[in-house]
Amino acid sequence: MIVLFAIFLLTLLVISAIAIVRVKNLFVAVMLMGIFSLLMASTFFILDAADVALTEAAIGAGVSTIILLSALALTGEHERFATANRWLPLLVVTITTTTIIYATFDKPRLGDPEAPVHQHVAPWYLQNTPELIDIPNVVTAVLASFRGYDTLGEVFVVLTACIGVLFVLGARPEDAPKPAKQQGLRHHLIPKVVGRLLVPFIVLFGLYVQFHGDFGPGGGFQAGAIIATGIMLYAVLEGETAALKAVPSSLLMAMVAGGAILYGGVGVAAILLGGNFLDYSVLSSNPVDGQHLGILLVELGVGITVCGALLSIFHAFAAREHK
């Protein structure tokens, strides 16, 4: 039965992918990309990857749709006709596709317990997580503790990407937006009332995902994106000025850098307490408690950075509209 669902979702996925490529109206393309991400999230969920599904739903279907829409507000709605040579891209795509299809011939069957990926370090993680870290969600244990270096790298990728985007858009915190009139949905009562009602619950749900990440699907990346969408909704409803008053640009900058520093700081604190970098066991007298504390702090760092980065990019797009 579940295979049937998976095939259905994958078929829809292919259809929407082709539609995204074919469609000329960019607004329609953005909407289709949101649908694509939602289908992708459902597929991940069917494959039992709840954490990835939550990330895809929050970032792919939620935040990136909003950011692409605010980019569309600066450009046109219609795709410019490509005059360049079409044969080279076609050749590249054909070669890549053939290589990938060839590579799948050696791929183990889906869910095969004998697959190499299940024979390498995964059994060790599954076996040792209850004893060493003692949290139910192994994904969080791997992400924040066993593979803490990788996640530290990801946080700095987010930080660097945010800095890069802000440089490209050329928005400085000082160019705060101007006239408070004409902003927000002042004259649309129903969306405004319902939206106002929802914003606190969205932020609350984000905090739940943040701090419940040890026990269920969730964690810093998802929570940061969810809280950012809540504040973006507030910005859409009440206008940029009100949103920037609630969460000022200087605070956003501090969040982007501070989250990464918090993550790195936990690692340095571990060194100062006599352990290795990002070895949380020394943070408390009991190694397992130390792991809990360390995971909580680094996840918090991830969440703060992701939330700050997404909001800064959103505000940078919005600030350009007024120029």
Partner: peptide, 16 residues
């Protein structure tokens, strides 16, 4: 509750 609040609002926003 979430869907009952948001879906009619979305329909309204679309029509509006």
């Amino acid at each position: 509750v979430f869907l009952l609040l948001t879906c009619p609002t979305a329909s309204y926003a679309l029509a509006n």
